[in-house]
Design a protein around this nucleic acid. Structure first.
Lengths: 336, 336
DNA sequence: ACCTAAAATGACAGCGCTGTCAATACTTTA
DNA sequence: TAAAGTATTGACAGCGCTGTCATTTTAGGT
């Protein structure tokens, strides 16, 4: 049942090397022989054995995804994108869930690199900001692509999204709806995204000549609870914003819940929007207007970069396109 | 830097075959030579090359996880468990996100099986109930383990959790809290879990000699929206249950939200519990009492089964232990 | 001490492919 | 039309390991 390159060569009446050439899409093969070989391969249901390829050649047809346990949705999407890119080139994706705090993490990576020499590694946050991991990879000459890192990686291209731009767009959308009194709930100060999202908000407000009321800028920590706290402070004031831009969805859901406690209707009394498009954003009611991070695309791009032949590229930063998802939690201001 | 078995053999002063024996923990090696080899291997930082092992031997040291795109949290947890089991035996996990409706899904699997002969496959729902997938695997003699399948798989051991027992425990917990007026919201009739969870509820009620009020048994579809609908029907009645057991968390969250609309305090006026422990279950307020599915354990067990030497086992069903997670959405009845 | 069985070790082929380089088949040019 | 490319194909070694089987060493029994 399982056929080898030799079987195909015999059937096509050529040498195994020629079959190899066809399978690898090498140049200098007549169209006629190409077709002969392809036909024979199809008839025999042949697919090159990856282990043999790896042993004989230099490629392993395997790339690895290293990730920390955190956001499950993130991982699933990255994987989806990465495997799509792999599939097109006959590659496969090996996953390695790591625990950032576990000291054995470095050994795991060493093993991965030595036992299974992968052709490349995708590093998701926070792993991509870990110097030791990066240096193991560099020492072993394994190409890697950091996804959404908070630090720069020299010559290595990185894949990310543009948080500033996304936040600006969301703000502009709110302004377009007629809102002028917009509150903002910041994210955890330790995450690089927090500052970027706030920056986008500020830019848009400034461009629209709208005043940012400092009392309406609340600190947050990206948690549901911190959203609740921020909302309480906001809703207890006599001057109340007509819209609240929360730096992420978890906090936005805390805000929605709190609004109900205060008897505020969403979006009639107050519009609320988030950032991330977590699964529950569409489950919650009213469904949350938010920014969908291009996670799958980032995975795709990262894999693509690893698999592309041109080793270095002048472009060092790939910004993948996010998407503004408009749902029911935002609406025009009552005045309009 | 990268050393081969030959290097180790030279350094230890033995043949490469002996090194191979040590690395594979084969019998008939003196303790003394074992140590010599281990030492040399350690000094040279040696790890056997998987591609070469695969080519020469019969094992590929790779198992695959096939899954459909649906629940991200599920995938992440299965992967965690499976890779833990793999790590211990020098295996690695290759992932293959598949789209159930995509016709090319079968080709993807064929390729996986031929290019990268994996030693085993973990099949998550709904893939494990797909006859074609199973038959490709069977035809190619690839061992596979279905995780939480809704159908039986003959001799093949399956890994699952006990939905009936879990639902029974949850109900008993509610009863222990003093509740006697308990409503139940069923899940999507197409999912096998729906019937099982209801069965567990019924069993527990019956054992406690409690009456099941047919008006309090609502149909649902596992969606937030259907939870809202069920809750409306329940709360619009004059006789209202003191506790609601929802067949999953998404519906439970719909119920919670609806309770607020009706001015009902949770858990003071009504206790609500779910099933699944999705990430937002702990994010939502009040945090949801629910059943944590042993997803990671199922992944671990499935991989373990695939990697264990004894090919067949008399035991054909592995029920992994779930966990009752008590949070804030349930409390004693006011009367107590 | 000697023979036999069992345990420990090693020699060698070959897994299925790719890299290198040589051989052959076609073109082009003068 | 012959010389000199240039494009196409093939022969063969060897990647790093394991399986098989032969060989050597050790232990056991009398």
């Amino acid at each position: 049942m399982k056929s080898t390159i030799t079987d195909v060569a015999k059937r096509a009446g050529v040498s195994i090397k020629t079959v190899s050439r066809v399978m690898n899409k090498e140049a200098n093969v007549t169209e006629a022989t190409r077709e002969k070989v392809m036909l024979a391969a199809k008839e025999l249901n042949y697919a090159p054995n990856i282990a043999a390829r790896r042993l004989a050649g230099s490629k392993s047809y395997l790339i690895a995804l290293l990730y920390d346990i955190p956001s499950p949705g993130y991982v699933a999407n990255i994987q989806k994108g990465a495997t799509d890119a792999c599939r097109a080139k006959g590659y496969h994706l090996v996953v390695e869930p790591l625990n950032f705090d576990d000291p054995s993490i470095l050994d795991n990576i060493e093993d991965l690199v030595r036992q299974l020499p992968v052709d490349g590694v995708i590093l998701t946050p926070p792993l991509c900001d870990n110097g030791e991991i990066v240096s193991i990879l560099a020492r072993n000459r394994i190409p890697y692509i950091p996804v959404a890192p908070s630090t720069s990686h020299g010559e290595t291209p990185i894949v990310k999204m543009d948080d500033v731009k996304a936040a600006r767009e969301m703000t502009e959308y709110l302004i377009g709806l007629g809102h002028t009194d917009i509150a903002f709930v910041k994210g955890h100060p330790g995450h690089s995204a927090s500052a970027l999202r706030f920056e986008g908000f500020r830019d848009a407000m400034r461009s629209a000549d709208l005043r940012i009321n400092p009392d309406w800028i609340q600190d947050g920590e990206f948690t549901y609870k911190s959203g609740v706290d921020a909302a309480r402070k906001l809703f207890n004031r006599t001057d109340r914003p007509s819209a609240i831009f929360s730096s992420n969805d978890d906090m936005a859901m805390g805000i929605i819940s709190t609004a109900r406690e205060f008897g505020l209707a969403i979006p009639d009394d107050v519009s609320i929007c988030g950032f991330d498009d977590v699964p529950s954003a569409q489950i919650v009611w009213p469904a949350l207007t938010t920014i969908q991070q291009p996670v799958a695309q980032m995975g795709f791009q990262a894999a693509q970069l690893l698999l592309s032949d041109k080793p270095s590229e002048d472009k060092v930063e790939y910004n993948m396109a996010h998407k503004l998802i408009i749902r029911e939690s935002t609406a025009k201001t009552p005045g309009l």
